[in-house]
Design a protein around this nucleic acid. Structure first.
Length: 440
RNA sequence: CGGGGCAUAGCGCAGUCUGGUAGCGCACCUGGUUUGGGACCAGGGGGUCCGAGGUUCGAAUCCUCGUGCCCCGACCA
């Protein structure tokens, strides 16, 4: 993409409303624009990252055997009356009336709707297990939206719902999502720690929040240092096998959020192994049994022909929140540092002397070669003063910068810079494409 | 929902106390000089001063009532 033809509204000064670093950087890098409290437009750069994150989530859901569909943002109120949540949900739910006075709501979550879809078509235990998910915008009318995209009212969420014949089968479904989440966050360069969460009236140990550590996190979290060293399962993990051994290794070291914290258990950990930090919740999984299937009549016939309510679980990932989370976890004074897997572009190509025939043609040539090699390149071909090109590239945080100017070309060299380490390297012009293709 | 604050050009702000031609920096446009890490010179454009009422010869400024946004707390992917 040529910058001269792109839409990248960089802001040089700090918007005063943005207190935390991810919010500030997203506004400054031209990724988002607030439209009203807790509601944002996604500008081109932000949308690219959002789609990258979404795609990683999607790939790992698919790998774990979940099946994608798409449910609407608007839902009929009657569905929620069936589960009893229409009244219970309170003011956080945005309620809408259409021209025929029909009551609708902007979905804050989709348990009711997915249960409705399931019950209309599935009758037999032979159709199970089943895990359906979608990635769709949600709306929760938070009292106080804040931190930019991290706590918006409108947010993009991946929500998956599992359907199983009994609790044991549901545990396997739970474990599959557990492992999928470990992989999902790892791929985004995040250390996400599963922490036991409140299960509410269901009880048991089948609810976990996935929390990433960041100094600006909203809540306080505690864990054993070992938790940070655990190995995340590889892409070859077999989701049909018993995943309990993997999950158990992740449930053994101490890890708890503020509200689940057991101070005395924590104190039994040797002091040098205690980690107490701030955390951002990026995922939440839980098993809730027949909470919705029972009132909504979602039953299946077992081998004996007897109909029983299905056992369900739901599994959420805050897709839009992850952008903020990743930035909180990965930035410096100059701006964002995107992990390669979610970077909006792989390489920023800087033309130091736009308008100079020699530099232009060298840049154009590199742009074409890198693009043909499958790289996403943001090519700054503008004739702005040299100075702020670097600042812009640093701000938007592309993993690599490729700097081409008359000085280097004189000796047939260009410069590459690693955004993360700040290391610069001069490379022969004819070898730089190969060099960039070989780096991470 | 409790507490605090803010609203003046795209962004950051001054002006408000003490009413009298709407300003500054950055950004933007034109011309020129520049060019290797947030340039320089000259010129220029851009404002229902959040809204509605009121007081006054005259309101960004004073009064009343709204609205929006931000921050702290309680609640949440």
């Amino acid at each position: 993409m040529r910058l001269s033809r792109y839409f990248l509204p960089i802001i040089k000064e700090n918007p005063k409303e943005a207190e935390i670093v991810s919010h500030r950087l997203m506004l400054r890098a031209g990724m988002i624009r607030q439209q009203t409290a807790g509601i944002y437009s996604w500008l081109p750069l932000g949308m690219r990252v959002l789609q990258k994150i979404e795609q990683i989530v999607r790939e790992e859901q698919n790998r774990a055997g979940a099946v994608e569909l798409l449910m609407p943002t608007l839902q009929p109120a009657d569905l929620w009356r069936e589960s009893g949540r229409y009244d219970a949900y309170g003011k956080e739910m945005l309620r809408i009336t259409d021209r025929h006075e029909r009551e609708l709501l902007y979905g804050p979550t989709n348990e009711e709707m997915i249960t409705d879809i399931f019950r209309s078509s599935v009758r037999s235990y032979k159709d199970l297990p089943l895990n359906l998910y979608h990635i769709q915008w949600k709306f929760r009318d938070e009292v106080r939206p804040r931190f930019g995209i991290m706590r918006g009212r409108e947010f993009l969420m991946k929500d998956a719902y599992s359907f199983d014949v009994d609790k044991e089968a549901a545990r396997h479904a739970y474990n599959r999502m557990f492992v999928a989440y470990l992989r999902t966050f790892e791929r985004m360069g995040l250390k996400a720690i599963p922490m036991r969460a409140d299960t509410g009236p269901i009880g048991g140990d089948m609810s976990h929040e996935f929390v990433i550590l960041a100094s600006t996190g909203e809540s306080e979290v505690f864990c054993h240092k070992d938790m940070l060293e655990l190995e995340v399962p590889g892409a070859d993990v077999d989701f049909d096998q018993d995943l309990t051994p993997i999950v158990d290794t992740w449930l053994t070291p101490y890890a708890a959020t503020d509200e689940m914290h057991d101070a005395s258990a924590f104190d039994r950990i040797p002091e040098s192994y205690r980690v107490s930090a701030r955390g951002i919740e990026v995922g939440h999984i839980f098993y809730f049994g027949t909470k919705y299937s029972e009132p909504m009549g979602a039953k299946i016939a077992g081998p004996d022909g007897v109909e029983t309510p299905i056992h369900m679980g739901s599994y959420g990932v805050g897709v839009s929140r992850l952008l903020g989370g990743i930035i909180e976890a990965s930035h410096d004074e100059a701006g964002i540092i995107w992990p390669k897997s979610v970077a909006p572009f792989d390489i920023g190509l800087i033309n130091m002397r736009a308008g100079d025939a020699g530099v232009d043609s060298a840049c154009d040539d590199l742009y074409e070669k890198l693009t043909n090699a499958g790289c996403d390149v943001l090519y700054d071909d503008t004739d702005n003063r040299a100075g702020n090109k670097f600042a812009t590239m640093d701000l938007i945080g592309l993993p690599w910068q490729l700097i081409v100017g008359p000085r280097g070309l004189k000796s047939g060299e260009v410069e590459i810079k690693n955004r993360k380490t700040g290391e610069r390297e001069n490379v022969a012009l004819d070898g730089v494409v190969a060099r960039l293709l070989s780096v991470d």
